[in-house]
């Protein structure tokens, strides 16, 4: 019998701990597939964040470090500088990367640190139970913005790709989504690109996944995809925000 699909080698046998309908599993798989396809399982290390994906270190079958909340880019910097012969990536959520870890991500990007950062944006704090995230949408209700996110009080959601692309050093920045099979295929290409650039030591690469949180949004998984498409995509526009390889090819 011909095997047409199997678990990527770069994932362990551990069972994911994510909620039904959560897209972390998809994002994990895309990264693991990219590791397999690039043949870099033996010399890649990753950093897990604090957030729903806190156990990512159990799921990727490579060497992994668990970072303090927001510090993954700093931890990854230490790892990469100590082991320049290895590929390093971080996997972070919106609270981790765009709130408590804002300084770390901006400075890692600004140094052109030779790491790949995978950023899962679902506009909410998942693990702690649905609090407002730096990327929560205007008027969005969360447990800490029960009357809706008031932009006059707490400002607007942070558009991280736009923010980082104001820096000179980053090599590649793209925002994708995980909201449909077509989007996931596109996302896969972005992940592959980011990691390939990383193996070629081209500099800082960044992929944002627009994602969902059915549990904390209180919307079923299928409707969550539609909600995200209608509400998040207009604000977090998918696209390539920086690709120096295109400029270099010219």
């Amino acid at each position: 019998m011909k095997v047409i699909a199997s678990r990527p080698k770069a994932l362990t046998d551990a069972q994911f701990t994510y909620c039904p309908g959560c897209l972390h599993g998809v994002a994990h798989r895309l990264i693991a597939e990219a590791i397999d396809e690039l043949g870099i399982q033996n010399n890649t290390m990753g950093v897990a964040p604090v957030g729903c994906s806190v156990f990512a270190y159990k799921f990727f079958d490579i060497d992994m470090a668990e970072a303090a909340h927001g510090r993954a880019p700093a931890v990854a910097t230490g790892m990469k500088r100590a082991r320049p012969d290895m590929n390093v990536f971080t996997y972070q959520g919106d609270g981790d990367l765009a709130a408590i870890g804002t300084a770390e991500i901006i400075h890692a990007a600004n140094r052109g640190e030779n790491i790949s950062v995978f950023f899962v944006n679902n506009a909410i704090y998942g693990m702690t139970g649905g609090q407002m995230a730096p990327t929560s949408l205007p008027d969005m209700k969360t447990t800490t913005s029960p009357y809706g996110r008031k932009t006059s009080d707490v400002g607007y959601p942070i558009q991280v790709c736009e923010l980082l692309s104001s820096l000179i050093a980053p090599y590649y920045i793209e925002r994708v989504s995980l909201l449909s099979p077509t989007d996931i295929i596109k996302a896969k290409k972005a992940v592959l690109k980011a990691m390939k650039f990383n193996t070629e030591k081209r500099g800082f690469t960044f992929v944002e996944f627009v994602s969902t949180c059915p549990t904390n949004w209180g919307i079923n998984p299928v409707d969550s995809l539609k909600w995200a498409k209608d509400n998040m995509i207009p604000f977090f526009k998918p696209g390539v925000y920086r690709d120096k390889s295109v400029e270099e090819a010219k």
């Binding site: 470090a65 700093a74 910097t77 230490g78 500088r81 100590a82 770390e104």
Partner: peptide
Amino acid sequence: GTFLQAESEVAAINMVYGAAGTGK
């Protein structure tokens, strides 16, 4: 060797954490 001036004390110690994880 590697010298890196970190963006903060917090980042510096976390860089140490990452590098120490490689056993160096």
